[in-house]
């Protein structure tokens, strides 16, 4: 059992008049890797954005609990690490500047040792002082992992975790995901077999609903 839980109850999302999903209920109450899959347009990205508190739900609730304590929405970002292809960091800053600004805004100390380790792991150390606008899409994706991991979040949400990455990048990501899963709830939204094979259980979204998972989440 983890001391962190993500409880989703009767979650419904409607964009305009379009229903994305309805009455989704599950609970991630253990550290490990959890998957969310479904066809394109089934609402995987919408669901993970709601879990991360980036957008609101139309109905239902998402509750983040640390022990018995409920995390309030204004503190939620302190516990979340998020990586997605549509996440954009500041192009006009270097990788190092981006990470330093993020630490200052989050009011967490800039852990140089950890950042340098992550920069080395993701092969960005030598380019850390270059402006992000000069990075390839794969390098930007690697930088997003450092952005997501450097404050040691309780929940790591990865939407299409290996998009834009080459095979060495994928290997690094899988290695990091597996090591993080020991102390963190890792949620992967993907359709890639290789990504989903890491998961202890996968929630399947289909026809606006959640297909029941193996562990009966």
């Amino acid at each position: 059992m983890s001391n962190y839980q993500v409880k989703v109850e009767k979650l419904t999302k409607i964009y305009g008049r379009r229903l994305i999903f309805k009455d989704i209920t599950f609970c991630f109450n253990q550290n490990g890797i959890w998957g969310i899959s479904g066809q394109n347009g089934s609402g995987k990205s919408t669901l993970v954005k709601i879990l991360a508190g980036i957008i609101g739900a139309s109905k239902g609730s998402v509750t983040h609990l640390l022990g018995e304590k409920k995390i309030t929405p204004d503190k939620l970002h302190e516990h979340i690490g998020f990586v997605a292809p549509y996440l954009v960091l500041y192009d006009e800053f270097s990788a190092q500047e981006n990470l330093m600004h993020v630490c200052k805004i989050r009011e967490v100390p800039f852990n140089k040792e950890k950042v340098d380790y992550l920069l080395n792991e993701f092969l960005l150390y030598d380019r850390r002082n270059d402006e992000v606008k000069g990075y390839s899409s794969g390098m930007k994706q690697r930088l997003k992992y450092i952005f997501a991991l450097m404050h040691s979040p309780k929940v790591l949400i990865l939407d299409e975790p290996t998009s834009n990455l080459d095979s060495s990048g994928k290997e690094t990501v899988y290695k990091i995901i597996q090591s993080e899963a020991a102390s963190t709830i890792v949620i992967i939204a993907s359709n890639e077999e290789s990504d989903l094979s890491l998961c202890r259980d996968v929630i399947q979204l289909e026809k606006y609903k959640m297909i029941h998972s193996e562990e009966g989440l």
Binding site: I54, D74, K75, D91, V102, I105
Partner: peptide
Amino acid sequence: RGTVMTLHLIASPNTVFTG
């Protein structure tokens, strides 16, 4: 520029508005 989501992930709404 698409950096709104980054702001969502690093700061509370009050911090964003005050900044």
